[in-house]
């Protein structure tokens, strides 16, 4: 009887495992997906039709967030880089509550606003691309298991 049950469960387990593996593999290759070991990297360009820059800023939207496995806190660090330059921090944020968050509709993403450093703003205003790196960093502990997915990066 146990064998019969095992025979029934095995294909289901295989299916779940293969789905998990393919999902995990897809996430690893998803440039918008970040963990403590892998940042999300997005390149954004300001629309040519956008209004003149008032207070230069960048907005980062998050469509998915998962806390660390052991509940230890993580922070999110946003770096920027313009062509020919190196990565520099633009700002940081946390997601509260520190619980699973999923926005199936991109318009429901949680959004975080950062002032752009003046030299970045000059490049962006001239129509150059800004490469944004979103990193998950452990505040305490390892931060393992924490992940997020960037919905979009806007240069209003």
């Amino acid at each position: 009887m146990a064998n019969t049950r095992m025979r029934r469960i095995a294909p289901v387990c295989t299916l779940v495992l293969s789905f998990w593996c393919s999902t995990s593999h897809a996430q690893e290759n998803d440039p918008l997906f970040a963990t403590v070991d892998k940042p999300a990297i997005i390149t954004a360009t300001r629309r040519a039709s956008a209004a003149p820059i008032g207070r230069p800023e960048v907005i980062v939207g998050i469509s998915r967030y998962h806390p660390s496995a052991d509940g230890s806190p993580v922070e999110v660090v946003v770096d920027g880089r313009v062509e020919g330059g190196s990565d520099r921090e633009i700002g940081r944020f946390g997601v509260t509550p520190d619980r699973e968050f999923v926005a199936d509709d991109p318009s429901d993403a949680q959004r975080f606003r950062f002032a752009l450093p003046p030299d970045f703003a000059a490049h962006v205003g001239a129509g150059e691309a800004l490469t944004v790196t979103v990193r998950l960093v452990a505040v305490r502990g390892s931060g393992k298991g924490a992940s997020l997915r960037v919905a979009d990066v806007e240069l209003p």
């Binding site: 907005i59 993580v74 946390g94 509260t96 606003r113 505040v139």
Partner: peptide, 17 residues
């Protein structure tokens, strides 16, 4: 879906977490 500025996204969120 509002834009979180420094007050909410940093001291508020990170002290909580």
């Amino acid at each position: 879906t509002g834009l979180q500025g420094t007050l909410e996204r940093l001291p508020h969120n990170m002290v909580h977490n």
